[in-house]
């Protein structure tokens, strides 16, 4: 039992806690340092605006943007449009990732389908989504469908790629173990392939959501009757530059929040991997 003494689970728990604590202490200082530059820029920016050195039509001052933000929030407009954008993005990402999971799963598992389908998809993947958007609009019109398709198209490839890669990358030594233990086809999938591929699938999903969010911006700016993008193009025609800036900020902040959310889920699901990779 000699070798067990130094690996008691309780010892590892304290090690984990210690890691978290030093991590958060570092985070506070990091945040202050990182916030320094934006703070200086904000002050200079506001000063340039209030002294009339920069035209408010080109660059509205931070205070004007803040005012627009408060006004749009109080009227509820901001949240309504944000809701539209979120629903639209989620729908597109949902369909795009569903297609990626199914197709990527089949392509990863079947050599025949892989040879048949993958080369074409690889070609399609390299086509920039900005270039495909006009074609999608041509085919699906200016309605909601084309927006969902643009978002879904953007979300599809990152997840498809990592789905195929992570299924192909399953450790052949573990595959051999499942042969020796005579796993059935179903158990082979649920106990080996899926868990082994999960880290790759999740990081693919994370990219997919980011690409879907990009697709949303493209779709809404190319013409839309609702959403944050609509708010922005509407403001453009009505010369309300501060609203455009509110839109940009919302896109950035929401993108970051969604990413944080996915990372949190990732941590939860991959506890077996993360818990002892510290140091």
């Amino acid at each position: 039992m000699r070798e067990q003494a130094h690996t008691l689970p309780s010892g590892t728990l304290t090690a984990q806690r210690r890691r978290v604590r030093t991590g958060s202490g570092g985070f506070g200082r990091h945040f202050l340092v990182a916030a320094l530059l934006p703070a200086i820029i904000l002050v200079v920016w506001q000063w340039a605006g209030s002294t009339g050195r920069v035209s408010p039509l080109l660059l509205p001052s931070p205070l004007a943007i803040g005012e627009a933000f408060v006004r749009l929030s109080l009227s509820g407009e901001l949240f309504i449009q944000l809701w539209h954008s979120l629903v639209r993005a989620s729908t597109g990402v949902f369909y795009g990732s569903l297609a990626a999971l199914l197709l990527g799963g089949i392509v990863g598992l079947s050599r025949t389908v892989r040879k048949l389908v993958d080369p074409s998809l690889q070609l399609l993947r390299l086509t920039p989504s900005l270039a495909t958007a006009p074609i999608i609009i041509l085919w699906f019109g200016f309605g909601e469908t084309s927006k969902i398709v643009i978002i879904g198209f953007g979300a599809f490839f990152p997840l498809y790629m990592s789905m195929v890669q992570s299924i192909l990358g399953v450790d052949s030594k573990l595959t051999e173990v499942t042969r020796v233990l005579a796993f059935g086809r179903g158990k082979q999938l649920t106990r080996l392939v899926l868990p082994a591929a999960l880290p790759g699938i999740l990081s693919g999903l994370r990219l997919s959501i980011a690409y879907g969010w990009l697709g949303l911006v493209v779709a809404e700016l190319l013409g839309s009757q609702s959403g944050i993008g609509y708010l922005m193009s509407h403001a453009q025609t009505n010369s309300q530059p501060e609203v455009i800036f509110v839109g940009v900020i919302i896109f950035a902040v929401m993108g970051k929040l969604i990413d944080l959310f996915v990372v949190t889920i990732e941590r939860r699901l991959l506890r077996w991997r993360d818990s002892f990779t510290g140091n």
């Binding site: 173990v177 868990p195 082994a196």
Partner: peptide, 23 residues
């Protein structure tokens, strides 16, 4: 026919008891 490899080849995502149960 049980087989033990040089490396333990456990499933890293399963706990000890679930590794033993495997499928």
């Amino acid at each position: 026919k049980g087989f033990i490899f040089q490396e333990p080849r456990l499933f890293p995502w399963l706990t000890v008891e679930k590794n033993i149960a495997a499928d």
